[in-house]
Design a binder for these strands. Structure first.
Lengths: 339, 339
DNA sequence: TTGTACGCGTTATCAA
DNA sequence: TTGATAACGCGTACAA
């Protein structure tokens, strides 16, 4: 490794103090234009790069934020990270990415080393297995800025940026109601998973507000995968034909794809016989024989807003605890038969 | 912010020196079991976390590697990052993620700050617009370990981990040849983009080795998008029907999807009238009316091997410059009519 | 086994 | 406008 060039080297060459070098390079006042010029020039000539680590040590600021992601390959996390990265770059921060692999122990571990590295703040989306919040509470107690994104823990004193699952589910259900569909079924996700619960709540709320009775036999708790949607739909078809739904709200797009398969196998048409809508605007949604009406969630925006909030806390601007909610966007395609 | 607890605090409480604390916590020899116990206990009680920044400064090692990604949302970069992260975690490294947004200037900028942060090594996939290699050369000259991944710059003294585009293209073309298809067309990518060139080379090599004449009019340079594939296929259909191909090798899956659309519009069947294959195993490939035969590229493996190499260079184990190539896997589905 | 002095590269403070 | 000194929190080298 070639020898590092330090501020002292630059100072020595010019026969001035390191302080002056520091001031010149950081655009501080109290440096004459002439020396500033000289410093900049020789720094370049000598190939001097400031050592950010040393700077961090004395300033107690690393300009780095730690981002904990449960699973980077999952659907919209890349989009979120992309949003985070962009804002970080703009505002001069760096991003240490850590992966919890949906495992609470690894998450704990990762948070620990992140704080060890003196990150200025933390952006966390909780792993699925997390049940104990003491780690988060400790962070908050220590005064380390923390913002949750997507998967949040509420009520412990941290801000949170999330997708509005409940409202979006309500929105898309209302869309079907307004177009006269009845009865409407719901292929629900597991109720112990937050998005499953939120979307089901939104579905029910829509029915209640429009004074429509909730037919419990048309709410099937299944899962988030294609096969789950397929099985759920088959369960519905096992009911007497008179109680089959005219429209179906699936918990997400993959479940909707599975349900569509089951509907086609039954020899029925979409949307003529049964209308169906999904959730999350999967890349495949528009490729279906009957393109799927769905909710598009803006991952980029979630990331952007989360860092924005975090950085404003770090810089002491907006310390208030907020729950920021990113609205979903209704994407109307053929599968709901509304156009 | 609550006051930091330092090693000195722990030392004072126990009325010993900070050195002993340091030794105890880092499992160094020359510490009695008893004091070690005490140190560990009080450290925990006081909530002491070693300051990694200070440690880095004195050891001149940050245990951090910088990863430059052109576009995190692009197809297999999440998989690569996931592979990188996993190995980093295992080996006790951290990962600073930086985004070049396919822009050479931003890339330059990002590399600069990464080195400023004293990363122990760099993992770079070059942005599309990069034409000047001096930045990379400077890194190498300084002795900062550098490994390229996916998009490489060869011949400047850095190791490289990439997908074997040429061989894979040859493999999939040979698959068509062996099943008796002739003539075979190629919807090529832009030749100035490396993957476009490599895949075209593989395609040609397969023909040459099997002593098949290359019909230049059946090689259409288009692009990497769906619409490019669509237009390219239309161009082929504008040829006299007698010279239409029996099979098509598309530069990637999206281009294949576009071509399929054009084929269907022509009233032809896949694979009965025209067989087609793609490249990259897009999530939509298996959902096509005629599921697409394609090449699956192991992104995770690329990331894993790249960090492996980088860390071994950092730790001085395996400094040799290597070109590591990850083989593609042929995924046979219906669209090639071979089963 | 334990402690002391010093240095890593930078910036804040205060004096010149 | 500039410089000397101390400090950030830790580890190395050597002394006790």
């Amino acid at each position: 490794m070639a020898k590092r060039v330090t501020a002292r080297d630059v100072a020595k060459t010019l026969d001035i103090s390191t302080m002056t070098v520091s001031r010149a390079l950081n655009d501080k006042p109290n440096v004459s234009e002439i020396t500033k010029q000289k410093v900049v020039e020789t720094s370049r000539r000598l190939g001097y790069f400031p050592n950010h680590i040393a700077k961090s040590l004395v300033l107690r600021k690393t300009d780095t934020i730690g981002v904990v992601v449960p699973e980077i390959t999952h659907s919209f996390f890349p989009g979120i990270v992309s949003g985070i990265e962009e804002i970080c770059y703009e505002k001069g921060y760096h991003l240490i990415l850590a992966h919890s692999a949906e495992d609470s122990e690894k998450e704990h571990d990762v948070i620990y080393t992140l704080t060890s590295k003196q990150v200025d703040g933390l952006l966390i989306s909780t792993a699925q297995t997390v049940e104990d919040y003491t780690v988060y509470k400790q962070i908050i107690q220590r005064g380390l800025p923390l913002v949750f994104y997507d998967r949040c823990v509420k009520g412990i004193g941290a801000s949170c940026v999330s997708i509005d699952d409940e409202d979006s589910a309500k929105l898309i259900t209302e869309h079907l109601i307004k177009h006269g569909y009845s009865p409407i079924a719901h292929l629900a996700g597991p109720s112990r998973v937050l998005i499953g619960k939120m979307r089901m709540d939104g579905f029910k709320k829509a029915l209640i507000e429009h004074k429509i009775a909730i037919a419990e036999e048309l709410i099937i708790e299944a899962g988030l995968q294609e096969t789950d949607g397929y099985r759920a739909m088959q369960k519905i078809f096992s009911l007497p034909e008179s109680s089959w739904p005219r429209a179906v709200v699936a918990v997400n797009d993959p479940a909707a794809f599975g349900a569509m398969k089951s509907i086609y196998e039954k020899g029925l048409k979409i949307p003529e016989d049964i209308a169906i809508v999904g959730f999350s605007d999967d890349i495949r949604a528009q490729l279906m024989p009957s393109p799927l009406t769905t909710i598009r969630q803006n991952a980029y925006e979630v990331g952007k807003r989360a860092v924005d909030k975090l950085i404003s806390i770090i810089e002491g601007e907006n310390v208030a605890i907020e729950d920021i909610i990113i609205k979903g966007e209704l994407i109307i395609r053929k599968s709901c038969g509304c156009r």
